[in-house]
Amino acid sequence: MVLPKNQPDTLANAHYKIKLEVFEGPLDLLLYLIKKDEIDIYDIPIAYITEEYLKYVRAMQELDIDLAGEFLVMAATLIHIKSKMLLPISSTQASELEDVADPRQELVNRLLEHKKFKAAAETLWSRAEIEQAVFTRAPIDSDKDNPEIAATIFDLVSMFKKILERRKEEIQVEIANDKLTLAQKIKEIKGLLSLKEQISVSELFNNAKSRTEIVIIFLAVLELTKESIIGLVQTETFGELIATRRDISKAYDPLANQAYT
C-alpha cells in the first residue's frame, strides 16, 4: 500500500501538518483523533473518523514508519462499519429498529475499555513513583545467601603444595615438553567446564604427568580466577576447592599474558 510518488494527492502536496506522535496502536490513534476533534465517543461520525484515520495511516507510510499490521486491520474495520451504516435498513428491520445493533457499538466498547486501562496504567505509575521514594535496609548476609565460602589464594597455594608433595615420589623422570603451554591448559580447563558446571580442583591435577604440568595447571587456575572466568569456592573452611564456571565464554588472550606461555 505504498502511495505512488507522482500522485497529486500525496502528503507533500496536500497541506497537512503532521504532528508526529508515536501511537501505541490503532486504538490509541483513534482515541487521539476523537479527543483532538472533541468527538462524542458514543456517537462517532464514522465516515469522518475513517477519513482522518486513513490520513494518518498514509502519513505514517509516507514517513516510512514501520506500520504494524494492526493499523491496517483497524482501517478495514472502520471501512466495514462505514459501509454497514450506509446500507439502507430494510423495512422488516426498520420495524424492529430497536433491536438493530449500532454497527459502531463493538468499536466503542473496545475504545472505552482501552481508555480505562490507559487511565489505570497512569494511576499505577503514580503509585510506583511513591514507592520509589521509599528505601529499605540493604540485605544482610545470611547463610542462605552464600552457601559457599569464597576460597582465597592461600587455599589454592596450600593445596598446590600438598599435590606437589604427594607427587614427589611418583615422578621419576622428567622429560621436557616444550609444547605444553599455559594457553593450551587454559583452553583445556575451559573445555572441561563447558561440559560441567563445576569441577574439583584436585581432579584437574589427577592426570598431570610432570612437575612442569602441575605448575602449568596451577598457573592456569590462577589465571582463570584472576580473569573471573572461573570462581573458586569451598563448601566448608579447609574443604575441597571447587572451580565453578563463571564466564567461560570470555576470551582468554594468551598474547596479553605472553610472559606465562
Binding site: E24, G25, D28, A68, E70, M74, R110, H114, F117
Partner: peptide, 9 residues
Amino acid sequence: EILEIRGVS
C-alpha cells in the same frame, strides 16, 4: 487476550 484489549501486539 492482551492484544484484544490493547489493539496492538
